[in-house]
């Protein structure tokens, strides 16, 4: 459990980081941010990057900014930054609630929001958040800046459409309407483990009926995504047990379940049914 040999680069500026990344990208170079996922898989030698571009000293990547339309989160922002709401918009409370479910406290002190997205673990709470809220990923390289929609960013288990010379420099999360409600629920066998299914929902109530429903699902398929079949069961309905159950059933039917030794396809569908409904129930509390 010793990583294979690698060269660590410690750039001080974004330009320097992008230049080094361009130089080493073809030679199996990877970005090191919080290291909470990459370093363990390096220890197992499941990843053997020849170069690590350590961005922890890069200036300007630690910003969190609310410009009235979106919340911008820089590549060095740690999970723990969200323990308290970072904005008065309902998004702040949403992120604070979700953040508490990420692994354990020491991991939240080091792991980063953007690093989690770039790592693209199917169970990641932040990947689920980005997919549910239609985040915009801002990728930078020496060739310029590219914006990628969340729905076009994830590419299966631990894979994204980032190019190898691109750094996920920041992520923009659209602010929620002032009257937005949210709910979140995840299931794991032990506290802090990867979720075996997780759901994040947002919606508004208009005359007692659900509008603008978003139902995000993580940990159940190769990539987190919104489940339109579940959203269709909610929009126009009263927020309550009947609609919530129908949404859970719809999500359970809609998925292509991930299968592993502790979760067969039937069990994954069971969990999806439950986490979607419970996330919706949480939105009422």
């Amino acid at each position: 459990m010793k990583p294979a040999p690698f060269v660590r680069h410690v750039p001080r500026s974004l330009d320097e980081a992008l230049k080094i990344l361009a130089d080493v990208a073809g030679d199996d170079g990877r970005i090191l941010a919080g290291g909470q996922s990459l370093v363990p898989i390096m220890a197992f030698r499941l990843a053997k990057p020849a170069h690590l571009v350590d961005i922890n000293e890069v200036e300007g990547l630690d910003k969190i900014a609310d410009d009235g339309k979106a919340l911008t989160i820089g590549a060095r922002v740690r999970h723990a930054a969200f323990h308290k709401p970072v904005t008065g918009n309902p998004l702040g409370a949403l992120l604070a609630y979700v953040a508490r479910h990420i692994a354990h406290y020491p991991i939240r002190m080091r792991g980063t929001f953007c690093g989690s997205l770039a790592h693209a673990d199917p169970s990641s709470e932040w990947c689920l958040t980005a997919a549910t809220l239609d985040a915009v990923m801002v990728a930078k390289s020496i060739n310029g800046t590219r914006e990628i929609k969340a729905a076009e960013f994830f590419d299966g288990i631990m894979s994204t459409h980032l190019k190898e010379d691109e750094l996920l420099a920041e992520v923009r999360l659209p602010l929620l309407p002032a009257d937005a409600r949210f709910g979140f629920y995840e299931f794991s066998r032990r506290a802090g483990d990867f979720a075996m299914s997780a759901s994040l929902v947002t919606y508004r109530l208009d005359g007692g009926k659900i509008v603008d429903a978003r139902v995000g699902l993580g940990g159940a398929e190769a990539s987190p995504r919104r489940i339109p079949e579940a959203e269709a069961e909610l929009n126009g309905k009263a927020a309550g047990d009947a609609a919530f159950r129908a949404a859970g059933e719809a999500a359970s039917r809609a998925i292509e379940p991930l299968v592993d030794h502790q979760t067969d396809a039937d069990y994954r569908r069971d969990l999806v049914r439950v986490v979607v409904r419970r996330a919706l129930e949480h939105s009422l509390t």
Partner: peptide, 11 residues
Amino acid sequence: LADYMPPTAHE
């Protein structure tokens, strides 16, 4: 120890 699961203080 993510897949082989001894109990933690929470459990």
